[in-house]
Simulated scan of single mutants.
Amino acid sequence: MCRNIHQLHNFEPPATGDEIHAAALQYVRKVAGSTRPSQANQAAFDRAVAAVAAATAELLGELVTTAPPKNREAEAAKARARAEKRYAS
């Protein structure tokens, strides 16, 4: 489930709200142990996603680095190359 959470810090352009929300959703799904909460738990699930997304956005806004920003396309190409090597048959 959590394999879809990607590093969000130090990219140009910065992480979008959708990327932050997707990471928060994956985190809450992992912690809750389910991808879809029951109707009884939906409100708590949604509040948790919103809280994690807010905390993530705050963290990303406060982090500082001297490293140059990473290129999203270059990082994605590296990840694809690693996957090809790992899953080659």
Rank of each mutant, 00 (worst) to 15 (best):
K78D: 08
L60V: 03
R29K: 15
N10R: 06
A40Y: 08
V52E: 11
D18T: 06
E62Y: 03
A23M: 04
G61T: 05
A24H: 06
M1G: 08
R80P: 12
H21V: 02
A76D: 14
L60I: 01
K70Q: 15
A83Q: 14
A22K: 02
A55V: 01
V52G: 03
N71C: 08
A55R: 14
F11L: 00
A48G: 07
K30A: 14
D18W: 09
V31C: 05
E62D: 06
T65Q: 01
A23Y: 07
N41R: 14
T16R: 10
A23N: 08
V31Q: 07
N10S: 02
S89H: 05
I5W: 02
A54N: 15
E58C: 05
S38F: 04
I5F: 04
T65K: 01
A67D: 13
A50W: 02
Q42E: 12
A22N: 05
E62R: 08
P37I: 07
G17K: 00
A57L: 10
A40P: 00
F11A: 02
R72L: 02
A40R: 06
V49P: 01
A77Y: 10
E73R: 15
A53G: 04
E75L: 00
Q42S: 07
V64K: 12
R3E: 04
A88P: 03
K85A: 15
R29H: 11
I20T: 10
A23T: 05
